[in-house]
Amino acid sequence: MDRQAVIRDAKHSAEAQQSSATSQYAIVTQDLNVWYGDFQALYDVTLNIKKDIITSLIGPSGCGKSTFLRSINRINERLSYVRIDGSITVYDHNIYGDHVELAQVRKQIGMVFQRPNPLPISIRDNVLFGLSIHSESRKKLPRNEVDDIVEQALQQVLLWHTVKDRLGRKATELSLEEQQKLCIARLLPIKPTILLMDEPCSALDAKGTEAVEELLWGLRGRYTIVIVTHNMAQARRASDECIFMLMGKVIEHTPTAEMFVTPAHKETADYIEGRYG
């Protein structure tokens, strides 16, 4: 079937997806509605996010991008007044199902935030933190294996060469750019399949932004990456597909190149050209 049509018309694609069972999609949401108390932040969000590519999520401030991301790894429900309805399926499993263990959801779906939030422990321990909470503490890995894990994770985020001589130093002493890279690196040892990034570069300068984008391309293909950004140039440079949201609704979901050249909706065109601010 025609893949572009599937992406372009989110509503229909959901039905199509159900028929073509083994999906090419990592994240499928169906009529997702989210309320903060009485305020509805997402309206009937139906999206199919493809495996192993980078999808960017753009839209004006307050349109619900973070809400969407936070629903996917179920951190929104930490707030008692949040209500969610509709379904979210990750790799064909309903993450709001009855027998879902939150720790497993969080292990599969890593999240990176706007402000780098390394833990106040050593760089090495930051990288190993996920492992230490998801493995039985009695089963100690041999030292050289652990060293390999640390090196690999830091290599993948292009941080190894700058920190390899100070792995024992506090992570909070690193520069913001390095901290953000470390926050990505510490997700990797527990082998997530999806990485959600909520404006990961907005606390960084141009050089840092470029460095993080570079590492994202390096991770592309191994992880399904969804990145929220306010930076149009970044969405354009660093993603395969692009989703445009407005006031809690999905307006458009197309390959990035297409969205930036021939947006299908007037709102999209307006936003891309900076008329929303």
Binding site: N73, A103, P120, F129, I133, L187
Partner: peptide
């Protein structure tokens, strides 16, 4: 710090004890 731990799947107690 707590959020960072929880978001990696740590339980409340793991978070308390470790961080």
């Amino acid at each position: 710090f707590r959020e960072a731990c929880w978001n990696m799947g740590a339980t409340r107690w793991q978070t308390i004890r470790r961080v």
